[in-house]
Write a protein that binds this DNA or RNA. Structure first.
Length: 293
DNA sequence: GACCAGGTGTCCG
DNA sequence: CGGACACCTGGT
């Protein structure tokens, strides 16, 4: 907390914002932060959000609202925003259109989607998603975030010397981690999963490029083959790393909703090809049912 | 100090 | 194949 506060002061001092962009449609930074899909995305104070991805850091803050769009201050050039962050935030997908597919008859889902308005499915680095979601198992979100940051500090590149921000390590960087590094990360039984996966990617027995070519079913099965990756983690990797919007991760919260709200009769394929977006609305809606952020 | 956290591998019927 | 059970560690 102290570090974040320090970070905020630094941001102000350096007047970090460089340009402005207009963003149209569903877009809520706080909701994205709490949507559970991203682990290096944090509010650092005063409405300023910081996210680290693709070896870059972005600071972004809403400046003001117009009726159908909003203006955001950003720490990069407009050009970089269009080249990198436009896709990251999935700004070419019309989430309002997806929300409008939900019938009012389904009261729970309709309310959940209203409540979640502004959540988007970020397009994140597939490798980072594989590693992060293997780490995520049987951890709460603060613990996941901490573990990911420690891993980045151990093996990533220093991309901001002042604020000590590190990039997410590549398979090569993780392959070269010492035993001491692994111990520092304190990943417990997940370490052996990651070591195995890292080795496969290091020796190019599997590549991200080859995975990207696969259709949903084949990709799912290929991910399941990875040591330490089960159905839930594979679905998350597909949704958040490969942007397979039909992938429907079922964690404890979703299972609870499917049982309590739908008596286990929810048609998981009803909103194809956007079942994963619907899942995300349900998951964010679980905040109202007692899930903690 | 328990108890549990966005699960998965393993073993057993 | 479905159901138990152990599992590292840290947060509440």
């Amino acid at each position: 907390m102290q570090e974040l506060f320090q970070n905020e002061i630094d941001v102000k001092k350096q007047n970090i914002f460089q340009s402005e962009v207009e963003i149209i449609g569903d877009f809520d930074l706080k909701k994205i932060e709490n949507s559970g899909e991203v682990f290096r995305f944090n509010e650092v104070g005063n409405g300023i959000f910081c996210t680290i991805a693709f070896g870059r850091v972005l600071y972004i803050r809403k400046k003001f609202n117009q009726t159908d769009h909003a203006i955001y201050e950003i720490s990069c050039s407009k050009q970089e925003f269009m080249d990198i962050w436009y896709d990251y935030f999935d700004l070419s997908t019309d989430y309002e259109k997806i929300r409008n597919m939900i019938s009012k008859e389904d009261k729970f889902l309709y309310n959940a989607a209203e409540y979640s308005k502004g959540v988007r499915i970020l397009i994140q680095d597939p490798w980072e998603m594989i590693v992060s979601f293997v780490i995520s198992q049987r951890k709460n979100i603060p613990a996941i975030k901490k573990a990911v940051e420690t891993l980045c500090e151990c093996a990533g590149n220093l991309i901001d010397k002042d604020k000590k921000i590190y990039s997410f390590p590549t398979p090569e960087q993780m392959y070269n981690m010492s035993e001491e590094d692994w111990n520092k990360c304190a990943l417990g039984y997940r370490t052996k999963y990651l070591k195995t996966i890292v080795e496969q990617f290091y020796y190019k027995e599997i590549t991200i490029a080859s995975l990207q070519e696969l259709d949903d079913d084949k990709l799912y099965n290929k991910l399941l083959d990875l040591y330490g990756v089960g159905p839930k983690v594979a679905s998350c990797i597909m949704l958040f790393g490969f942007h397979r919007l039909n992938s429907f991760p079922k964690d404890v919260w979703i299972l609870r909703i499917l049982e309590e709200q739908y008596n286990n009769n929810f048609d998981l394929d009803k909103y194809s090809p956007y079942n994963g977006v619907i899942q995300q609305y349900m998951f964010y809606g679980s905040l109202e049912l007692g899930r903690k952020v």
